[in-house]
Write a protein that binds this DNA or RNA. Structure first.
Lengths: 338, 338
DNA sequence: TTGTACGCGTTATCAC
DNA sequence: GTGATAACGCGTACAA
């Protein structure tokens, strides 16, 4: 009910001026130990709380960081947010979340609104649709740190935290080769996207290392992540020379493939090995647990947050930092010949 | 680089006063159509953006809503956030996220910090540990709307959005009985928590309706959600009269049970039916898709957000609203005898 | 219809 | 070491 107490209230209480109170509260060196003590006492006694909004207006720093991503309720994204929050909260920053729903329009609106709201930084995974860089340049123009994660744009002055998709794919494929598989197929989604290009690249590199010739017939782009894995596996198995392993760029692709392979009586992992990508929670719950490349999303979030903090700390100096995280291969039954 | 343009800049531009500009921008009735037009023009021309912080300081409304929950990266919680964000964003509110990690201390800190940051409302799912109501009373004392979701506290002056656990459990159990099962067991977690009490209650009600006597031996409390389902199922199957169905209060419990049942050669759903609770994503991906009670988390979030908006709109009038959402039973193979 | 003046709570810059 | 004052950007009684 009552108004919150301000520095004026406590100034009045002690017959000093608000400025002095402010100094005492902010550990200003030019203040007597005694006044400081009195102020702090009075502050707790009157249950004083700093008004962060006033402070924000004065300083131009809101202590808010905007996080922008396509959808919150995907395991990968929510885990990234978790990492960001855990890193930023102890430093006194609040995390504001907005979803783009993969729409460029929404993304532009959101970014501009966040700027209006004076956020101290923006951490973003760009929407699939986004082509324009205009809104990002606005962020830069206001000198607000801009950090991309997972899906990035190459813009000078910005930073990024991404996954080494190439290496993840390389390891997954190499692992399949080490299991003795020699005809490894690859399921992908959309080769116009950088991450899938990189996963294809890593796959090829592993093949090359084992002196295996790349076979374009073994690469299939799925129409949807959800249902198409089964069909793709079917198509692969109907080839004159069917593969003996699949490295899928998504977990759902791997799941669909496994479903088909089981239906046609394939023994996994004895006759056929499968590895997915993302390490979605369900992969470990399956009757046949699925090997998968883990993206370390929580770490990615923490890293993005740290990059932001570095930018903030280095007043004026424009820092540009691009961190590439190393994925981890989680080996489970679906590819473990023993 | 440059400072952002303020109402003063545009006032100067037009040789009028900032007050007039402010009025024009805020659709104040007492303003000539022409000045208004000029102001709006100049505003877009100079790329003027309202400074929300200044506005917040002036009005006492930050347009921020705090969302407090145990962990962000759980499907249920992240889906609730999604609902909240989608409802609030179009109304110009920002969603600030904080995690309690199920710790009372953290929860108290977070709530107080949010109050300092002048949030216009708090939407919270309380931590398991929380006993004190002190921080909640502080929220009320400041006249900030407080809305609980999922896990609530009974505090006058607060609102809540929860799930009808009783009814969900009732439907799940009834469904099992309709499949012809007559010895339905129940796995639970912690009967000191209201939600699990209610799930037990719904289970009992369905039994009673079918004239089946409640058998305490058929109710097992799991030690952990993750691993204990298997053991519990084993224990149940070793009873002199083993059950022919399980209604589990968690999906992981159901999963563990199914794993054990398969191992001992049980045919599901022919010989044995299983239903879980929460409709976690993995339930539909299993080789044997698991029936489960869906909690409608996105709707829960949207509803909580709407309740908040109602509170805000009704100046002064203290509204107290308790919404109970109806869960949906997702019937899948694990319980579909057909 | 518009201008004047002040306050929201803080902090920084002068003075003393 | 402390006080007085201005300023951050906006909105609004009050006056004109």
């Amino acid at each position: 009910m009552k108004k919150k107490t301000t520095i004026y209230d406590i100034a009045k209480e002690l017959n000093i001026t608000a400025a002095t109170v402010s100094r005492a509260l902010n550990d200003n060196p030019r203040i007597s130990a005694e006044t400081k003590k009195l102020v702090l006492e009075a502050a707790t006694r009157l249950n004083y709380k700093q008004n962060r909004v006033a402070q924000a207006l004065k300083s131009g720093k809101s202590k808010n960081v905007g996080v922008v991503l396509p959808y919150i309720n995907r395991n990968f994204f929510s885990s990234v947010i978790r990492g960001i929050e855990e890193e930023l909260n102890p430093k006194g920053y609040y995390v504001i979340i907005s979803q783009t729903h993969e729409k460029e329009n929404k993304e532009i609106d959101i970014v501009q609104n966040l700027l209006d709201a004076q956020v101290d930084g923006i951490i973003i995974s760009v929407s699939r649709q986004t082509n324009s860089n205009k809104h990002f340049n606005q962020v830069l123009a206001k000198n607000v740190p801009l950090i991309f994660f997972d899906r990035k744009k190459e813009i000078p002055g910005t930073s990024s935290v991404t996954l080494d998709d190439f290496n993840g794919a390389y390891r997954a494929t190499k692992h399949l080769l080490e299991q003795g598989c020699r005809k490894v197929a690859h399921m992908t989604i959309d080769l116009s996207l950088l991450i899938y290009q990189n996963r294809l690249g890593g796959y090829k590199k592993a093949l090359a290392e084992y002196g295996i010739e790349f076979n374009p017939e073994y690469v299939i782009a799925l129409q949807s992540e959800i249902t198409a894995g089964k069909d793709a596996a079917k198509k692969l198995m109907e080839l004159p020379e069917p593969p003996d392993a699949i490295f899928s760029a998504t977990d759902l692709g791997a799941l669909g493939a496994i479903q088909h392979l089981k239906e046609v009586g394939m023994n996994i992992p004895e006759d056929f090995c499968v590895v997915g990508f993302s390490n979605e929670p369900f992969t470990q719950f399956m009757e046949l647990p699925i090997s998968s490349v883990d993206q370390n999303p929580v770490l990615m979030g923490k890293t993005a947050a740290k990059v932001f903090l570095e930018q903030i700390d280095s007043e004026g100096v424009k820092i540009e930092k691009n961190v590439v995280l190393d994925p981890t291969l989680e080996i489970r039954t679906s590819s473990q010949k023993k």
